[in-house]
């Protein structure tokens, strides 16, 4: 049976089915390949980097040379090694904060949308408050005054400030889904509310959840970079944000070390582009009209 025929045949091939649609979308294919490269770099970082990210036994502040493709920092660390290790931080923050804020958004959005009434009023109130609070100052304040420091603090701060938008979207989606006939049918079949939400409603909003998750990842990666650039990140970890921060403080512009400054910025741009491109494919998954035939 050909791959195409399997998609048409349905169930046994359902898992490849969604992947085929993603892969067929050209933008999404490029995004997937780019993301795969980043993941591979992050996972294999200790083995493929020429030097440790914190080894500072090299001549400081030199431009790109054969031993140091992207030059060294003001403290004499290898920029390329830092860049590759930085991918780990960005991906970890993106994944963890993305999952966390998606979970919060799901819990709040689904409860509010399904139960409606007073519960909805209260939860929507908090969602709206969270939407209008200026996120960056709040993140800065939280990160600056928190009693503990570290990467997980950053993840926590990004998650609790970034869930509201997703919750809002999920709430409106469930409001349209909860009055469908098959939900009424599930009630008549005696299913409990929790089961209806998890088993009947959630599978029908998968693509929305995935898109929300991608958006949350993007926001989280950007948030981490912002905090780190402002010097509020975890100084113990190597991330693209801290690299930018150090490049700025180390006078990269003055010493002419363009690579030190440009490389982390380009890496950010590339990772965000990858996620955005994948989102095109996920859109096609939920809306057949967007599929490239």
């Amino acid at each position: 049976m050909t791959e195409a025929a399997q998609v048409a045949a349905g169930r046994p091939a359902r898992l490849p089915g969604w992947f085929v649609i993603l892969w067929r979308n050209r933008k999404c294919r490029i995004g997937l390949v780019m993301l795969l490269v980043f993941v591979a770099l992050a996972v294999l970082a200790p083995w493929i980097t020429p030097y440790g990210p914190r080894e500072d036994d090299y001549p400081p502040s030199i431009g790109p040379v054969a031993e140091h493709w992207l030059g060294t920092t003001a403290r004499g660390e290898d920029v390329l090694s830092q860049l590759i290790h930085g991918a780990r931080t960005s991906l970890l923050v993106g994944l963890a904060a993305g999952v966390l804020s998606t979970v919060i958004a799901l819990a709040v959005g689904l409860t509010a949308g399904y139960l409606r009434g007073l519960v909805d009023e209260v939860l929507s109130f908090f969602t709206n408050v969270a939407l209008v609070v200026p996120v960056l100052p709040l993140m800065v304040t939280l990160a600056a005054y928190a009693p503990v420091k570290g990467l997980w603090l950053i993840i926590f701060v990004i998650s609790v400030t970034g869930w509201a938008y997703g919750a809002r979207i999920k709430r409106s989606q469930i409001i349209t889904l909860r009055t469908r006939d098959y939900i009424t049918a599930a009630k008549f079949a005696g299913d409990s509310t929790a089961r209806i939400i998890v088993r009947e409603i959630m599978p029908n909003m998968t693509s929305l959840i995935v898109v929300g998750f991608m958006g949350a990842c993007l926001g989280a990666i950007g948030g981490e970079a912002g905090l780190a650039f402002l010097g509020l990140g975890d100084p113990q970890t190597t991330s693209w944000g801290t690299m930018l921060n150090q490049a700025n403080n180390g006078g990269a512009m003055l010493t002419g070390q363009w690579a030190w400054l440009v490389a982390p910025g380009l890496a950010f741009a590339a990772l965000m582009t990858a996620l955005t491109l994948i989102n095109f494919g996920v859109d096609a998954l939920s809306n057949p009209h967007l599929r490239e035939d």
């Binding site: 006939d181 098959y182 009424t184 049918a185 009630k187 008549f188 005696g190 009947e200 599978p203 029908n204």
Partner: peptide
């Protein structure tokens, strides 16, 4: 819920009455 054991519904739109993912 117990009463609904005795009263069941047949819907108008067979395309909307079954969950597309089940």
């Amino acid at each position: 819920r117990a009463y609904r054991r005795h009263v069941q519904l047949v819907f108008q739109d067979p395309f909307a009455a079954l969950n597309p993912t089940s």
